[in-house]
Write a protein that binds this DNA or RNA. Structure first.
Lengths: 231, 231
DNA sequence: CCTTACAATTGATATTTATCAAGACACTGT
DNA sequence: ACAGTGTCTTGATAAATATCAATTGTAAGG
């Protein structure tokens, strides 16, 4: 850990309000490391040794079984991942790889658990973080069980529009990953985009242009309890 | 709350190790209530007022969107549900109804949050419970994204076999709910059972008889990281 | 006891989604 | 610049899953 990284780290939400001693203990054995794209950080089934926090870049969480692979989530700064495995001292349920060059803070599991037990501010922050993650997965699960693939895509486009505050949208990662994340094949994602053409969705590479948001929303029928990240 | 219920409640895992004051505070405004089957306890979108704990019976968590409905999980004693909403002071993401006559402990959200802030043993218990729930949903999500419907059914049957320690299995609830929980229609569940007939799966009403567990397991390819509830 | 309602199954069909194959395109590293 | 690699798209086809309709069986309520 380079000393000049510390002030930036200290500002992270998960460390807000915790004592200097706690922060020191957490940082003592931690690493803040920069990884190139496509670097596997975690493999599912391994014991959870470190709590990972994406500080910069983007990390893909994925799972494998029976020769199949699926993107479970994309993690952006500043969020931790696989906190539950740390708290339960269990194995990772998902694998993680960088999607682009990323800076990742790695805090030893034992430190996390110890400070959790001794610093109420930290345990509070951890529980909020964990709750957010939990609700995120529940929403994803509802998304998958209650919608068709085209509906999922339409709602995802609306989410990007919301986030980027623009009717001209840039897809944040490859369509292949987007497809997997949305629970479909790349071929089907292509066709889903075509299906949305009548609703004013124009695709050019990784740029999406929306010309009739109202119609698109009417089709997508977004729900706060699935799509709203702040709820 | 009837006084003679208290000792039983006190033994629950989520109260293990917490102080008498904390326990008293939690119980003071709590209810332990018996509900008939098919009673709606929670509606998604409502503010999270109470932490619910299933003490006896069985509760179905389900979600609705766009005219569709899907069973998200079945909750058995002794587990809480929708803890994350309580901790975040947010709205429920799922609805809940009793599946059979059930006893449910209802603890006011404000008490939960207050005791969480003041009693480390309780915050520890809450975080373990929350982590378990989180990992449960992740496994469900993997199940849905990485397997076909017949594979999901096969693995579910193996799980019941494990739990009931018997090759003669009793389905714990209606096939309609099972189908929805597994992410398929009732019609398809019927057909999926037929597909499994060559693997020694015989169905008679809500009784399943397995005559070739080895072949079934070979087909199902169960994975610890999806099917093992203790991992 | 009858009636009603609904779960469950089955068949026929439609829709959705995946797979396979091929070609266009873009990016990377030498 | 160019070969090589992998993404993306499109078409043809196959597989998985849903829908619709009809029937049986079963359990609850009057």
């Amino acid at each position: 850990m380079r000393p000049d990284d510390l002030p930036q780290i200290r500002e992270l939400n998960i460390f807000k309000g915790i004592s200097e001693e706690s922060f020191d203990e957490l940082m003592r054995a931690s690493f803040l490391q920069t990884f190139p794209a496509q670097m596997e950080l975690i493999e599912e089934g391994e014991p959870a040794d470190f709590l990972h926090v994406v500080v910069e870049g983007c990390v893909e969480l994925f799972a494998q079984s029976n020769g199949r692979e699926s993107t479970m989530a994309m993690v952006y700064p500043v969020s931790s991942f696989i906190l539950a495995a740390i708290m339960k001292d269990a194995v990772y349920l998902m694998s993680a790889r960088t999607n682009k060059k990323s800076r990742v803070l790695m805090i030893p599991a034992v430190s996390v658990r110890h400070v959790f037990d001794t610093d109420p501010a930290f345990s509070k922050a951890m529980v909020i973080e964990l709750s957010s993650c939990y609700r995120g997965v529940v929403k994803e699960h509802k998304n998958l069980k209650l919608r068709t693939s085209v509906e999922r895509l339409a709602n995802r486009i609306l989410r990007y529009r919301q986030k980027q505050q623009n009717d001209q949208i840039t897809l944040p990662y490859d369509k292949k990953i987007l497809a997997s994340n949305l629970g479909m094949t790349p071929e089907n994602l292509s066709r889903a985009f075509n299906t949305l053409k009548p609703y004013g969705v124009k695709v050019e590479g990784n740029k999406i242009t929306l010309s009739d948001v109202e119609q698109l929303a009417k089709f997508a029928k977004p729900s706060k309890l699935i799509d709203d990240q702040s709820v």
